[in-house]
Amino acid sequence: MASPTIRVLVADDQAIVRDGLVTVLELLPDVEVVGEAADGLEAVRLAGELAPDVVLMDLRMPGLDGAAATERVLAASSTVAVLVLTTYADDASIVSALKAGARGYLTKDAGRAELAAAVRAVASGQTTLAPEVGAKLIGSFTGGGAISPPEESGEAARLDGPALLARFPTLTAREAEVLGEIARGRSNPEIAQQFFVSVATVKTHVNSLFAKLGVQSRAQAIALAVGSRSADA
Rank of each mutant, 00 (worst) to 15 (best):
P4N: 14
T5W: 03
T5C: 11
L9M: 11
L9H: 05
A11C: 10
Q14E: 04
I16H: 13
I16W: 07
R18T: 05
D19Y: 07
L21N: 06
V24H: 05
L25W: 03
V31R: 02
E32N: 10
V33W: 09
A37L: 11
A43Q: 08
V44M: 13
V44A: 07
L46K: 09
A47M: 12
G48T: 10
L50V: 12
L50F: 09
A51V: 11
P52N: 15
P52L: 12
M61A: 11
P62F: 14
D65I: 13
D65P: 05
A67M: 10
A68D: 12
E71F: 11
R72L: 15
S78A: 15
V80M: 07
A81L: 00
V84K: 03
T86W: 03
T86P: 00
T86I: 09
S93H: 06
S96L: 10
A102I: 09
G104Q: 14
Y105Q: 08
T107S: 06
D109L: 05
A116D: 05
A121R: 14
G125S: 12
Q126R: 15
L129R: 00
V133L: 01
G134D: 02
G134C: 03
L137E: 01
T142C: 07
G144C: 07
S148K: 08
P149F: 12
G154W: 00
F168K: 10
L171N: 03
E175V: 07
E177R: 12
L179Y: 02
E190I: 04
E190H: 00
A192D: 00
Q193E: 13
Q194V: 06
F195Y: 14
F196A: 13
V199L: 10
A200L: 10
H205K: 12
F210N: 03
G214L: 09
Q216M: 02
S217K: 04
A219M: 13
A221R: 01
A221D: 00
A231I: 05
